[in-house]
């Protein structure tokens, strides 16, 4: 028998698991209750401002500054939504935002897929160095490059155009990194098997690599959608008073105006602007959660 054998007498450790297993069910229930309580509190903290926005958007202007604030809409003013839609030209702004966002999402997904494929599967000189350079763009804040980008866009005559709104965002270091990691998970054997089966790089990408990386591509698309939909500063800089090109976030600001009595209309506009994101969240909830937890599971 080894010297460092357990020195605890045989009887001692036996009693503890017994006591533990006496009320396993109650313990589980307690743990569940605590967990759900915390989640509920968290949800209330996050959702309360949104709820109050909805409530206030439905209140008459004279009830908005009541102290304490009203927690339920008294005599809901549904027409605020119609007013916001027509007065704020939200239809046009939403259309602009959707066009801008779709261009950016499509651009980012396409460029990221191609760049990530090159970094993951092609052999070329300075591959690693180039990838590090790519990554380093993640460390430069948008504000640093903003002025240069603005000058470039202006000199190209892209002020007040969709090109100006979207072209600076068509490539993404983050997306390239994300997809490269996903592509690296694909076994090399598959690439070689495909090569023997007569599939070149393009076909391998479309038939094998992309289908296998689909969850990651979906995640990238969602993040890119959120990012471009919520853009404020850049659209403000590159669009002037030309209403035809402004996005919904800028439109909201214009809607706010200066009068307090229109605050309910502004809030209604904000809710309208959030609806597309809400729909996206509901439809792609699964992918979103999977993409956020992907790193944790593996």
């Amino acid at each position: 028998m080894p010297v460092d054998a357990p020195s605890v007498p045989n009887g001692a450790p036996r009693t503890r698991p017994d006591r533990k297993s006496a009320h396993p069910r109650r313990r589980r229930v307690v743990r569940q209750v605590i967990r759900y309580t915390l989640l509920t509190v968290g949800a209330i903290i996050v959702l309360f401002p949104i709820y109050m926005t909805v409530v206030n958007s439905l209140l008459a202007p004279n009830l908005l500054d009541r102290q304490p604030p009203l927690l339920f809409p008294v005599h809901p003013q549904w027409h605020t939504y119609a007013t916001a839609w027509s007065q704020g030209h939200l239809g046009l702004y939403l259309r602009n935002s959707i066009i801008q966002t779709l261009i950016i999402v499509a651009g980012q997904v396409v460029t990221a897929v191609l760049a990530a494929y090159a970094f993951a599967f092609l052999r070329f000189p300075f591959r690693r160095t180039l990838f590090v350079v790519f990554l380093s763009t993640l460390m430069i804040p948008f504000e640093v490059t903003m002025i240069t980008n603005l000058n470039t866009v202006n000199s190209l005559g892209w002020y007040n155009t969709f090109q100006g709104l979207t072209v600076p965002f068509l490539a993404t270091g983050f997306g390239t990194f994300l997809l490269r990691q996903a592509f690296l998970q694909i076994p090399r054997d598959l690439e070689e098997a495909a090569a023997l089966d007569g599939y070149g790089h393009w076909r391998f990408l479309l038939r094998v690599a992309l289908p296998l990386a689909r969850p990651t591509v979906a995640a990238l698309a969602i993040f890119s959608f959120l990012g471009s939909w919520n853009q404020y500063l850049w659209p403000l800089l590159v669009t002037g008073d030309n209403n035809n090109i402004r996005t919904v976030q800028i439109g909201l600001k214009a809607l706010q105006g200066n009068q307090l009595q229109d605050l309910n209309v502004t809030l209604a506009g904000a809710i309208i602007a959030v609806v597309p994101l809400f729909v996206l969240l509901v439809v792609f909830q699964k992918q979103l959660v999977r993409s956020l937890t992907a790193g944790a599971v593996k």
Binding site: P187, D189, E192, A193, A195, L196, D197, G198
Partner: peptide
């Protein structure tokens, strides 16, 4: 490889 008219069975099956 694709023009060599051979088929390969991989250890991992691929």
């Amino acid at each position: 490889p694709k023009d060599r008219d051979i088929a390969m069975v991989f250890q991992s099956y691929a």
